[in-house]
């Protein structure tokens, strides 16, 4: 239902308005997201972040260009499996799941929820930093996480917070 809503209600926005309007709406959303995030548990936080990203893909044509022709399956989780979220990119779309997917391209296991937050809030989402700190164990193709890192930064860049 959510995805149908997105497809029919949100996707047309950038066609009627310029990308600047889309980015403006995303910026408004990001402010409320920031408010929303304070005090949230890590599992909700991760999901919210991914959903925020998902929304930005709908609102900004420029940002959506990042996932045109891109296919990738990401699994983020903590070592104790208490926090998990998956992101699937396909057909120019992003899907966020609260579940663990099996057929991932990359699985990023954070030592604990603090390590996850440290990665998400780091200035460059530089996975190498997290690996150096032994905060994370990565299985699979690292290039996917490099691309993910860019997309997070690109969003921040577009929202004027990076």
């Amino acid at each position: 239902m959510r995805s149908i809503l997105k497809r029919f209600l949100l996707r047309p926005i950038p066609y009627f308005f310029t990308d600047i309007v889309g980015v403006y709406i995303a910026r408004l959303f990001s402010r409320s997201l920031k408010k929303e995030l304070s005090g949230k548990a890590t599992d909700e936080f991760l999901e919210l972040l991914l959903r925020g990203m998902d929304l930005a893909f709908y609102l900004s044509k420029g940002y959506r260009k990042n996932i045109r022709d891109f296919e990738g399956r990401y699994l983020f989780k903590t070592a104790d499996n208490l926090v998990a979220a998956s992101a699937i990119f396909k057909d120019g779309d992003m899907e966020v799941l609260e579940d663990v997917i099996d057929d991932w391209d990359i699985m990023i296991t954070f030592k604990d929820s603090e390590a996850l937050l440290a990665y998400i809030f780091s200035k460059d989402q530089d996975i190498l930093d997290s690996i150096l700190a032994n905060d994370v164990e990565v299985e699979g193709n690292l290039n996917y996480i490099y691309k993910f890192g860019f997309m997070v930064r690109d969003l921040a860049h577009k929202l004027g917070v990076g």
Binding site: K123, D124, I127, N143, G149, R153, D154, G162
Partner: peptide
């Protein structure tokens, strides 16, 4: 080179 991908927007300021 792809390891530079996450920091392309910030590499000139690091």
């Amino acid at each position: 080179a792809l390891a530079l991908w996450p920091e392309l927007w910030t590499i000139s300021k690091r």
